[in-house]
């Protein structure tokens, strides 16, 4: 054991040696800290905020956003981005409202399946045509919007009988919003599947270093298509939750959720450069985003500032979580 010891010592002095710095640890804890600070601040501003009903209202409001963003988180973990989720959710809401009378209880699984296929198609276009993911999904965004406008006749589609999707907007045990339960279950299932299977390292390797992952024999293309597929399915499911609470589907129903969803992902601490992060982080991010919105109205600030806030948050959160070793030339 004599020769290698010198190598080990050398590694100690090498540039790569240091562990996570204090700043890195802080950045990693930032989402949870932000959430705690927000809760405390809101409680101070409005003592009523800590009542069970207000807390439940926040959780309920965050649920569709969390579901929507959780799926897209997988795409971001793989190093891509999905800008089509909101438009796909809108389209899904229209389809659900149109199909409920005919398909009844099968309507929502059908919608989720269609959304999953739509996501997978985008993934396939990204992988096989070698088009950057933001362009594919930007294109997807307008295709989905266009289809939604055409099939809905550019009007809101009301839902008359919502029995089969009522589970998306009711209370469990009288208090807990069912949408929140759905969100937690979805995220838990996603997280569990990723965690206990080799998918975890496949996704992370793809996100951190696609070239290395490919040369280690990881089916990078399949992993990416899978991520887009899950992202699509989550958009479909988020649409089910939205339709359940608005009793209607609309061609632009979920469009305004794109920025909050992207914000939720990056606030959660998932790096836009890929690899680092996770779906639970996105749930925290979704709660932070929702609390900010609630907070603004409690403090009495105009809702118009919401958009400015999202814009600022996205840029700052991305800057904090960026993997700078990977972006030598930033375009």
């Amino acid at each position: 054991m004599s020769t290698p010891a010198s190598t080990a010592k050398r590694s100690g002095s090498a540039a790569v040696a240091a562990g996570p710095t204090a700043a890195e640890r802080l950045t990693s804890l930032m989402p949870v800290l932000a959430l705690a600070v927000l809760v405390v601040a809101l409680a101070a501003a409005d003592p009523d905020f800590l009542r069970r009903s207000s807390l439940m209202a926040v959780v309920d409001a965050a649920a569709p956003l969390a579901v929507l963003a959780a799926g897209a988180t997988l795409v971001v973990l793989c190093g891509g981005i999905d800008l089509s989720i909101a438009a796909l959710a809108s389209l899904s809401s229209v389809l659900l409202a149109l199909w409920l009378p005919g398909l009844d209880a099968l309507a929502w699984p059908a919608v989720v399946a269609v959304a999953a296929v739509a996501g997978a198609l985008q993934g396939a276009a990204h992988v096989f045509l070698r088009i950057p993911s933001f362009i594919v999904t930007l294109g997807g965004m307008s295709v989905f919007s266009s289809i939604a406008l055409v099939v809905s006749g550019a009007a809101t589609v009301p839902v008359v009988d919502d029995t089969s999707i009522r589970w998306g907007f009711s209370r469990v045990l009288g208090t807990v919003p069912s949408a929140a339960v759905v969100a937690v279950v979805v995220v838990a299932v996603l997280a569990l599947i990723v965690k206990v299977t080799p998918l975890d390292s496949s996704i992370k390797a793809t996100g951190y270093s696609e070239a290395a992952a490919r040369l280690a024999g990881i089916p990078v293309d399949l992993v990416k298509i899978g991520a887009f597929c899950v992202s699509g399915a989550c958009a479909g499911l988020a649409a089910v939750l939205l339709v359940a609470r608005t009793f209607s589907g609309g061609p632009t129903l979920a469009d305004s959720l794109l920025l909050p969803a992207v914000a939720a992902i990056v606030i959660g601490g998932t790096a836009i450069t890929g690899g680092h992060g996770g779906v639970w982080r996105t749930v925290v991010g979704a709660l932070v985003v929702t609390l900010l919105r609630v907070g603004l109205s409690i403090v009495g600030v105009s809702a118009a500032y919401e958009s400015i806030l999202y814009g600022a948050i996205i840029v700052v959160a991305v800057a904090l979580t960026l993997d700078r070793s990977k972006v030598l030339v930033v375009k």
């Binding site: 105009s302 400015i308 814009g311 996205i314 840029v315 375009k331």
Partner: peptide, 27 residues
């Protein structure tokens, strides 16, 4: 500026600035 100073990719900075612009417009 955000692109060159924070080294945030342009599709993110411009998405953020777009949101800021929409906010200003709404105000």
């Amino acid at each position: 500026l955000l692109l060159v100073l924070l080294k945030v990719p342009s599709f993110m900075t411009t998405l953020g600035v777009s949101a800021v612009g929409l906010g200003i417009a709404t105000l």
